[in-house]
Each structure stands twice: as C-alpha cells, then as structure tokens.
Simulated scan of single mutants.
Amino acid sequence: MVTTNNETNHYKKLSIQVSLNGLSFCILQKDTISYFKKVNFKKQLDPIKILKKIEEIYEQEEMLNQEVDEVNLIFNNALFSLVPEKLFDEEQAASYLKFNTRILKTDFIAFDNLKDEIVNVYIPYTNIINYFFDRYGEFEYRHGLSILIDSLLELPKETTGPKVYLHALFGHYELVIIENGKLIFANSFEYDTKEDFLYYLLFTAEQLNLDPNKFELILMGDINKDSEEYKMIWDYIKNISFMGPFHPFTFEEKAKPEQELSEYLLIKSL
C-alpha cells in the first residue's frame, strides 16, 4: 500500500497519559500538535473514579471525538518492577511485582521491552484499557517509566560521569540514573513535602556513592525554578539543569501547554 502525502498530512495520532492524580491528552497531525488538554485532580483517585473523569472529558471535549488513526496510552503509576531481560519469564510475571506492590488475583500484568535488555513489568488499569478499546479498537499502551528510560537511553553517550534525571509529577517523581550510556538506577518516589522530595534524592545518591558536588542533575516534568522543591535542592546539589529541547514538533497556539517539559512523557510517546 502506498501512502500519499495527503494521507500523511491528515494522519492523526492521539496520546493519552493516565495517572492517579491527573490526565493529559494531545493530538499530533503531521508535525503539529493541534490539541492539548490537561486535568489535575485535587487528590489521588482510584481507577474507577479516573474512568468516570475520562468519560466526562469525552462528553465535554469535541476535539476528542474526532476520528484518529493511532492511539497511544500511557500509564503512570508505582506498580512496576524492572527485570533484566535474560532473567524474565513471562509466565512468572506476577512474581516480579509481589515484593514491592500488592497484587490482586484479578490484576492484569503487562510488560514493556526496553532498550539495554530491560523488561518493565507493571499493572495497568484494565477498566481504562477496555474503555479505550471499545472506543478505538486496537491501540498501544506503555508504562510512563518505560518511555522515560528509553528516551534517555537514546541520548548521545557521554563519559563525563553519571547523569541523574528527575521527572517530577504532582506528589511523586521518577529518578533515572545513566552512566556511559547504561542504566544504573530507576525508581519512583511518592512525597508529601519538599523535605521528602530532597530526602529521596540525596538518599539515592548516597546509596550509589554519588557526590552531590559532582554529579549532574537534569530536571524535567512538572518542576521549574519557582518550585519550592527546586529551591530546596539548589542548596544541596551543585550542578542542576533543565532538560533542553526534546521534540521536533510545533504547537497550534490554542494547544500549547504552559510548560512543555511538564508534558515530557506525553510528547515523547508521539
């Protein structure tokens, strides 16, 4: 089958990010993001209540009811475990999760194959998968940490020591550490205060023998120079920067987020 330029120009890709404390949506058409919507919850919700929120948004947002050619769904939760590919057995997938999360008999276990011979085993929300399957048919879904790790492993390899990447969201963050193009650490931390935010970062650095005066901390996600968390870590870590340009797309004016870095995973999934 030959794809014409006209078909390419009208090809629409929808990306949806689902977390316990918020939702975000965007639509890419060719190289332009034509739609963006973000909804923050005041508190964490369970998957049943999240689905109700999704249904409400689809009733209100006309742009989400247009036909699209491709759908990507991102789950962002702490229900995951990273496993070396050579040790992974699909039939034993639940066993990799039982030590760090509570598993119910009804839970569906999914996994993503990552770069660097890593498998991310996780629990998605099946009620939300079923909702989008009924609406769109077959589609792709991945865990947010999978997208984050793969995107960082694609960056040019450097030999200047470990780089610590912190992807912040409301109430939690992912920490990914890469050295010489190899993943050496990845985890997710929930926090209530800026002191908690700092503690997990410094504790991880201490456990890995990383000197706060030497390693580079690169920030992305929902954090900026006005954030209380940023102001606190600035007193303890010497080399801090924000992720630079990370995508080739343009935004229609009505679809531009306040901070592009806050939608890193959503955009990188396109």
Rank of each mutant, 00 (worst) to 15 (best):
T126Y: 08
F170Q: 14
D235F: 13
F185H: 10
F242C: 06
F246A: 05
I123P: 07
Y230Q: 05
V39Y: 06
I48A: 14
L208E: 00
Y230M: 03
F249S: 09
H172W: 11
Q259E: 13
E179R: 10
T3H: 12
N21Y: 07
D196I: 09
E56R: 13
K214A: 11
F185P: 00
G137D: 07
K37R: 15
L270G: 07
G171W: 10
L97Y: 09
S15E: 01
A93C: 11
F249E: 12
G137M: 08
Y58M: 04
H167Q: 12
I128V: 09
I50Y: 06
I177Y: 00
I109H: 03
L202Q: 00
V2K: 14
K13F: 07
R102G: 11
E90S: 14
I149G: 00
A110S: 15
T204W: 00
L208K: 00
L155K: 15
L219D: 04
F111I: 05
G221M: 08
E138W: 08
K30M: 10
K214F: 10
D150G: 03
E190V: 11
T160W: 03
A78T: 12
K182W: 00
I149N: 00
K256C: 09
R135G: 02
N187F: 02
F215M: 06
N180A: 11
D192N: 15
N127D: 14
T160H: 10
F189T: 04
I57Y: 08
V176F: 02
I27C: 12
N187T: 03
D69L: 07
K157C: 09
P162I: 01
I50V: 14
Y96F: 14
N21G: 13
I223P: 06
E61P: 09
H10G: 05
L266E: 04
Y35D: 04
F133N: 12
I74W: 01
D69F: 07
Q92V: 05
P212A: 00
P47M: 05
A78F: 12
I223R: 07
